[in-house]
Design a protein around this nucleic acid. Structure first.
Length: 373
DNA sequence: AAAAACTTCAACCGCCGAGGA
DNA sequence: TTCCTCGGCGGTTGAAGTTTT
């Protein structure tokens, strides 16, 4: 049973607040204090949702709030706190008198994040990109000459980065990474050279012929769901791991799933979406990759990356259902994630797809039979 | 000068846990 | 124990403002 709405949304005013409305809130709070916000609109004579009133008070009207710009000291404090605890904006805001979580969050997303990117620092891990890619390349065969490996499941990543829905794609022709920025209001892309850590914004990614990722997706007329993978540079990693108030698996998964990217191309009997949404490791048919040909998502990589973090508690959204049923601790989730991460190889990718497809087809018939019975 | 592109940030959304009936 | 309300949180949206073309 879902939670009922806090108010009749069709009959309340929304949008920006007028000075008159602000005055009513201020008058009410000065008389009655805060608390029981659902009654505030009625008592204060406002045609607003109580929740909206509370937000207006806490984010704007509170007398202890600062409304001027962030100082360099505050900026540094935010960066340090974000490095330590991730996007726990309310916790960060508590360390900054006069600032709200909304202020801090907005300031991070509009200023600090970009500032770090331009400095060649990953705003998630707070490490220089050059270091990340050096570490990454050392264990993943990142710079190897295996062109067949570039666009398997392992090579398509969504950098689940706050609200920006970035995807990381590897170029076939050079070991660079593109962060595809899917921000609704900002379509700029960021290109990073892993060797140098150089960061460059580029809004014309698709026009650059040196990036050969599109031909890799020529599975006709199917949705290609690029699963966001929290294993890499994931905000979920830093935030969910470092916070004592851990999010639930379901919560993380739903967030991640919302950010799946869909690319549509022309037809094929093969379902990418099913393949990518299932867990190949659970299939005994799925070939395992030899240790000497570790791809980007080998368990070794995952562990190596994990070692660079304080803790590891990554959940792959594709396994949500399984985790919901099976896991009892984050340790298991880690194991599952690492196991999942170790799956697949470029050369056997098609075989794996075919196996998976036939297995799913047989299961579907079984399921249908059962249902009809 | 006008249009397009980009940025900012207030406000909203949906989920969660706590606590009371 | 269950249901409901409330406050809190992080993520997202979109209007308004600003800058660029």
């Amino acid at each position: 049973m879902g939670r009922p709405p806090c108010c009749d949304k069709s009959n309340v005013k929304r949008g920006l607040w007028t000075p008159e409305e602000d005055a009513k809130i201020l008058a009410y709070v000065s008389d009655h204090g805060t608390g029981n916000w659902t009654l505030v609109p009625k008592k204060a004579g406002l045609n607003r949702c109580g929740k909206s009133c509370r937000l207006r008070w806490t984010n704007y009207l509170r007398p202890d709030l600062k409304h001027d710009g962030f100082t360099p000291e505050e900026e540094e404090h935010i960066i340090n706190l974000h490095k330590a605890i991730g996007s726990r904006w309310s916790l960060i805001a508590k360390q900054l008198p006069g600032r709200t979580d909304n202020d801090v969050k907005n300031y991070w997303n509009t200023k600090l994040r970009k500032k770090l990117l331009k400095m060649g620092i990953d705003p998630i891990t707070h490490k220089p990109f050059s270091q990340i890619f050096t570490d990454f390349g050392n264990v993943s065969g990142f710079g190897n000459n295996d062109p067949g490996n570039h666009f398997g499941r392992r090579n398509i990543h969504n950098n689940n980065n706050n609200n920006n829905n970035n995807m990381v794609l590897m170029s076939k022709s050079e070991p660079s990474t593109i962060l595809l920025n899917k921000n609704s209001s900002n379509n700029n892309n960021v290109i990073i050279n892993p060797r140098t850590g150089f960061v460059q914004e580029n809004s014309n990614l698709y026009s650059n012929p040196s990036w050969e990722f599109l031909p890799q997706f020529q599975v006709p007329n199917q949705e290609i769901i690029i699963q966001p993978n929290p294993n890499l540079f994931s905000d979920q990693v830093s935030s969910s791991c470092s916070s004592p108030s851990s999010s639930t698996i379901t919560q993380r998964s739903s967030t991640v799933q919302q950010q799946s990217q869909i690319i549509t191309t022309p037809s094929s009997p093969f379902s990418w979406s099913e393949f990518l949404l299932c867990d190949p490791i659970s299939s005994p048919d799925f070939p395992q990759e030899p240790d000497n040909d570790q791809g980007m998502f080998s368990s070794t990589n995952s562990l190596t990356l994990a070692e660079n973090e304080t803790t590891v508690c990554q959940i792959n959204s594709t396994n949500e259902k399984k985790f919901d049923n099976n896991i009892g601790s984050d340790d298991q989730a880690i194991n599952n994630t690492n196991a999942e991460a170790s799956s697949s190889s470029g050369s056997s990718f098609v075989d794996a797809i075919l196996c998976q497809d036939s297995e799913m087809s047989s299961k579907l018939f079984e399921l249908l039979d059962t249902s009809f019975d």
